[in-house]
């Protein structure tokens, strides 16, 4: 770890602190937000942390190449797609259940989820 963090002495340590903090915040939000949209936002934090990490590693660990940056771009695209899918589901859910509070969705018992009525 130590060897990695001091590699190049170019602030990699600080950058990794930023990305891991972002990622951890995202995970925390994902586990604690009750509103589905809040969960989606937290998820975006996670994905963006990863994207930043790719860019950082590209700049500091593999300079002169672009693969990490390309990956970061793709991650942004995937994140956008994820949001579209997620929002579509939330809209559907709201129209069916009049709520997007995930803690109110508890139908997974043996009897309660017996398929369509």
């Amino acid at each position: 770890m130590a060897e990695l963090l001091h590699a190049g002495g170019s602030g990699l340590h600080a950058w990794l602190l930023v990305t891991s903090a972002l990622f951890s915040l995202g995970i925390y939000g994902l586990l604690t937000r009750r509103n589905a949209v809040g969960i989606l936002l937290s998820l975006e934090l996670c994905l963006n942390a990863a994207a930043v990490q790719f860019a950082v590693f590209n700049a500091l660990r593999a300079p002169g190449r672009v693969d990490g940056a390309v990956m970061a771009l793709f991650v942004v695209a995937v994140a956008a797609a994820e949001v579209v899918v997620g929002m579509a589901l939330f809209v559907l859910l709201y129209s069916q259940r009049r709520t997007v509070d995930v803690t109110e969705l508890t139908g997974d018992g043996r009897d309660s989820a017996g398929g369509p009525p």
Binding site: C46, V56, L92, R97, G107, D108, A113
Partner: peptide, 27 residues
């Protein structure tokens, strides 16, 4: 819709973990 939402939440988390792991592998 409810099933899909749960699938989505866990799936998105898994996808984030995978991506973060790939980022570390890259680094």
């Amino acid at each position: 819709a409810e099933a899909a939402l749960k699938y989505f939440v866990v799936g998105a988390l898994a996808s984030a973990l995978l991506l973060y792991g790939l980022g570390w592998l890259y680094g």
